[in-house]
Design a binder for these strands. Structure first.
Ligand SMILES: [Mn+2]
Ligand SMILES: [Mn+2]
Ligand SMILES: [Zn+2]
Ligand SMILES: [Zn+2]
Lengths: 125, 125
DNA sequence: TGATAAGTAGGAATAATTACTGTTTATGAG
DNA sequence: CTCATAAACAGTAATTATTCCTACTTATCA
């Protein structure tokens, strides 16, 4: 994979936010630096970065969200405010403990939760 | 929600298979009984059945898969043969144990795993 | 310093899902 | 049972996230 300023800008944008942006979000933001940036370029780069495991994708919603934090963590989406929040969970432990007996080789896993976030719960009170 | 023979046929098809079919799969199969069944009707019914929690959806792949088994269980997809396999995991336990400290209200969760299934692993040997 | 393979912009194509329209049908009040 | 009506249906058009295509540009390295 070779360097391009667009790719660099896309990656550093994703790494710099906590918000798990969509391709559209990324396009709109990086366009401020590269006004000619096309959405196709955003998608192509996102797929490249995924292949090289520099980012991850969250595919549970209609639209894919991207994540520059590749450490092992889980996600929670609030049905009220639609924000995706990082959670650290000992999922790996129970997978390593329970999976061997099924006989499948687990290469990746994702725990995704939905509900009402702390903030929204307090606001409605 | 009111009775219709199409809806009944769609639901009983989903309940009768282990394969986690897509809307296309369901359409093709139920069309054998209702040759005039339209894909739009399949989607409309799937959404109705989801709302009434008579089925669940698996949204991690590009295409949504549907599941007539609404008991608490997890899914594993084989990257080789693409089959989706049911796994029973004590996910609920660790969620109930660890989530309260984050302060969010979890209403649903999904653990999705990918890798190579038992069968495919043995075949390549 | 080129040759060239990889990357880009911009627009067209794809494909899953939803929306729309006119017709049919399940349902329950009378 | 009958019939008004809201829900469901078939068929088709629209939507939309994502991928593909083409001609042009650029990073890389021999
Ligand atoms: Mn994250
Ligand atoms: Mn299942
Ligand atoms: Zn919220
Ligand atoms: Zn397999």
């Amino acid at each position: 994979m070779r360097f391009s300023s667009q790719r660099e800008a896309i990656l550093s944008y994703i790494r710099g936010v906590q918000s798990h942006p969509t391709a559209q979000d990324i396009h709109e933001s990086v366009k401020k630096i590269f006004p000619s940036l096309s959405l196709g370029t955003v998608y192509r780069n996102l797929n490249q970065l995924l292949e090289h495991q520099l980012i991850t994708a969250i595919k549970q919603d209609e639209i894919v969200h991207y994540d520059g934090n590749i450490s092992d963590h889980q996600h929670f989406r609030c049905k009220n405010c639609d924000s995706i929040i990082d959670l650290e969970f000992p999922v790996k432990d129970i997978i390593l403990e329970h999976v061997p007996r099924f006989g499948h080789e687990i290469q990746a896993y994702e725990l995704y939760m939905t509900g009402i976030c702390k903030n929204c719960k307090n606001e409605t009170k």
